[in-house]
Design a protein around this nucleic acid. Structure first.
Lengths: 151, 151
DNA sequence: TCAATAAAGGATAAAAACATCTTTTATTGT
DNA sequence: ACAATAAAAGATGTTTTTATCCTTTATTGA
């Protein structure tokens, strides 16, 4: 469904949102280890996410990644768009250039329905929500340390 | 959504089903041209589809590809499975091995819903239906010659 | 002010997906 | 029988995606 790059990106964002804060930023080695993604590759993806204002970063001692308030409120679809672009939400399901509302391919309407529900889902899901889901006991990744985070 | 390979495969199957018959088989050059796919690559995909009993073929003079009655009744999902395998319908949406019903990732339930509707759609769509949709005027591909096929 | 730290950025490498080319095998009309 | 035809099969090439490595830049605590 998503590209690997996108999967890593989403996982990283969830992890950073759940574990990091402006006071306590998260480093790349920590992130890579805990989301089970190649460290350097994750670094590249995070660059993209920083450029697109999905994630904040700071260089130097005690630097790392974190999400500010506005960023935590962003929708999943914005993360996906930043990494994979719009292709997921545009174009014919069968890859036909000639396909359109007027001259639809045999899968056109059915596809449209699926895609619009996928899109809606991604719009209704915020980063914050995903990281909360993580915290309230539905464990994911390797984040055992979350126990102490719970209220 | 689908891989390019899968897109070409589906398009080929629709085209063959719509235009071909046991009496009048369709050759690879014809198929490639009309579904706007690389000819030799399409040939490879058709090999796979023949192996998986989605399409019938015959070598030699007047040979080519066609779909028999049973094959026309196959579901879209069978075509996709033959080419892309099961990965589309299995595994965590975020690519996590650790994700399960018991320990779901933050996207688990939402993803499950989307995927099951995608699956249902593919199970409810037959090759025959898609090629009929093509015939009743909703033009696709480059198949102008379909006009004479309509009843 | 400088050594340590950590992200940013650029270059390169490996793997997978996509595509083409060439040879072989089966079929058929003559 | 055999020449022509068309798919099957195997080898090879290209492009994109995924992944790693190395150098540079910014920040900070001592």
């Amino acid at each position: 469904m998503f590209s690997k790059t996108c999967e890593y990106g989403i996982r990283a964002v969830i992890y950073i949102s759940a574990k990091g804060s402006q006071e306590s930023k998260i480093g790349i080695p920590d992130i890579g280890k805990n989301i089970e993604a190649p460290v350097q590759f994750t670094a590249k993806i995070l660059q993209t996410l920083v450029h697109n204002d999905i994630v904040s970063s700071q260089k130097g001692v005690n630097g790392g990644f974190y999400l500010n308030k506005q960023q935590k409120q962003k929708q999943l679809i914005e993360v996906v768009r930043a990494i994979d672009g719009d292709k997921m939400f545009s174009g014919c399901g069968l890859g036909l250039k000639s396909c359109s509302e007027k001259e639809p391919c045999p899968l056109h309407d059915k596809f449209k329905a699926i895609r619009s529900s996928l899109k809606k889902m991604m719009e209704q899901t915020t980063i914050d929500e995903m990281s909360k889901t993580l915290k309230i006991g539905r464990v994911l990744l390797r984040i055992e340390q979350f126990v102490k985070h719970e209220e």
